[in-house]
Design a protein around this nucleic acid. Structure first.
Lengths: 233, 233
DNA sequence: GTGACTTATAAGTCTGACTTTTTGTCTCTG
DNA sequence: CAGAGACAAAAAGTCAGACTTATAAGTCAC
C-alpha cells in the first residue's frame, strides 16, 4: 500500500485515523491540538499537519476557539483510499466490505462493457493471461496465488474501460478481494463457475462483445454479493 | 460548497490545487516548499500544511532532498470532492463531465433498485415531492428552479439506497447536473420524456418495484449519456 | 568502471512568541 | 427580567529562526 508513516505526521495519522474512523471519538467530539501534540509527543507543527490531512478527508473540522471537532460519518470522504483502508482495518470491516461489494456490482459490469469497446490489444492479452493464471491456480489450495491473478484481472478490466473514475477503483477492488480471501468466506478453492466466468469475460472483451462482457461480469458480481448474503432471496 | 479559503493554507490551495489539476505543472515537475512559500507570501508552516493536503490527495509527493514532485494524473484521488471541483473549474471540464456521467450511468440505476427496497416512507414522500417540483418547473424557461428539484431528486435516491458509498455520490451528481444546466447543453426546457421518467421512478420506488425503478433510471442515465454524445450509435 | 566516502541540499522538526477569531459571560440599561 | 453591548479568555492560526536528518550527487581512490 502507500508508504506507511513517512514522517512523524504520518505516524500520528496511522493512530488517529483508525481511531476516528472506528468511531472511537463520536461525532461532535472535540479534540485540542495542543493536547494531541502532547499525547503523541510531537510538536504542534507536526500535529497541525496531521489535523490538516484529517480535515481534507472531512473527518474533522477545525474551528477557532472551539477546537478540532469530529464530523458525522455521513460527511466523511469514504472514497479516500486511506479512509477505506482505515475502516477495513477496524471494527466495521464487514459493513465496509458489503458497501464496497455493492459498489463493485454496480460499476464492474459497466466497466467490462466499456472495456470490450476500448481495450487495447495488449490489455486483451493481459486479461487472457490473468484468466489463465486463475485457472492454473484454482485448485490445490493456492488461494494466495489465485488472489494475485484475480486482482490483476479486475484491475485490467477497470483500466481498459477507458474511464478514469472506474480505473481508480482498482485499489478498492483489490482491497475487497484481498479481504475476502484473508478474513471472510473462501476457505476452500474458488468456485469453478466463477473461474470459468472470468475466462469468458476475457474472451468477450477480446471479441469486442460489450453486451456479453457486461452480462458475464454481472454474474461474477452477483456471486460476490451472494457470498456476503446481500442478495434478496 | 465547502467554505472557501478558511485560513491562509486554504487560500494557497485554492490557487495551487486548480493549477496542478489543470496540468499547469506536468507530472514529475518539482516544486520547492520555500519558493512556494515566498511566492504566496506565507510562512513555511502554512505552506507545509498546504503541501500535506495536496499529498493526501495524491496530487504531489514530498521527498527529502528532492522537493515536492507532481504525481501523474493516474494516481490522483479523483473521487475527492475538492479535486473534482478543481477539475470541473479548469480546462478538462468536458472530459471530467463525461467521466462522471458514465459513473452516474453505472451507479444510479443500481442505487434506484436498492432504494425501492430500502426507502423509508419519508424518503418516498420527498421523492414524489421532488418529481412534482420537476414537473411544475419543466416549462417556461425555469431551468434554475428545475435544477434544484432535479438535484434533490437524485440525492434522495442515492441516500435511500442505504449504501453509504452511493449516498456520498450525491455531491458529484449535483455538480454534474449543475454543470450541464449552466455550461453545456440544455438551453431550452428539459426533455418532457425525462421528466416523466423521474415521476415514474418515484412511483416505482414507492411501490417497491426494484426492477422497474432500476430500468427507468437506466433510461434516464442513457439520456444523459446521449446528451454528451457518449453512446455508441 | 566500481565502490566507498564526502558534501550540499531541501525537507523535516522543534520552540516560543505573537495575532486573530470566536464564544461565553458579565454588566448595563430599558 | 430580557436584550444589547462590552469584555475577557481560550484555542487555533501565523510567523521566524535554529537545528536535524535523509539522500542525491559528486569525488576520489583502487
Amino acid at each position: 500500500m502507500t508508504t506507511p508513516g513517512r514522517g512523524l505526521h504520518g505516524h500520528v495519522l496511522d493512530t488517529l485515523g483508525p481511531a476516528i474512523t472506528a468511531g472511537e471519538y463520536p461525532p461532535g467530539s472535540v479534540l485540542r491540538t495542543d493536547e494531541l501534540a502532547q499525547h503523541f509527543e510531537v510538536s504542534r507543527s507536526v500535529m497541525r499537519e496531521a489535523v490538516r490531512v484529517l480535515e481534507s478527508m472531512h473527518l474533522v473540522e477545525s474551528r477557532r476557539r472551539v477546537g478540532v471537532t469530529v464530523r458525522p460519518k455521513a460527511e466523511w470522504n469514504v472514497y479516500d483510499p486511506q479512509v477505506i483502508r482505515w475502516r477495513l482495518a477496524g471494527a466495521d470491516r464487514p459493513h465496509q466490505l458489503r458497501s464496497l461489494t455493492v459498489l463493485r456490482s454496480a460499476v464492474e459490469p459497466v466497466a467490462a462493457g466499456l472495456a470490450a469497446k476500448h481495450a487495447t490489444a495488449q490489455q486483451c492479452a493481459e486479461l487472457t493471461e490473468c484468466a489463465l493464471g486463475m485457472v492454473a491456480t484454482s485448485r490445490g489450495h493456492r488461494l494466495q496465488e489465485y488472489l494475485v491473478h484475480d486482482v490483476a484481472f479486475h484491475r485490467v478490466v477497470l483500466a481498459a474501460s477507458g474511464n478514469e473514475m472506474f480505473a481508480r477503483l482498482g485499489d478498492v477492488v483489490a482491497e475487497v478481494l484481498a479481504g475476502r480471501t484473508h478474513h471472510e468466506v473462501m476457505f476452500e478453492d474458488p468456485d469453478p463457475a466463477a473461474v470459468t466466468l472470468h475466462v469468458q469475460v476475457a474472451e468477450a472483451v477480446r471479441a469486442g462483445d460489450a453486451t456479453r462482457a457486461e452480462q458475464l461480469t454481472r454474474e461474477i458480481t452477483v456471486g460476490a454479493l451472494q457470498e456476503l448474503d446481500i442478495l434478496a432471496p
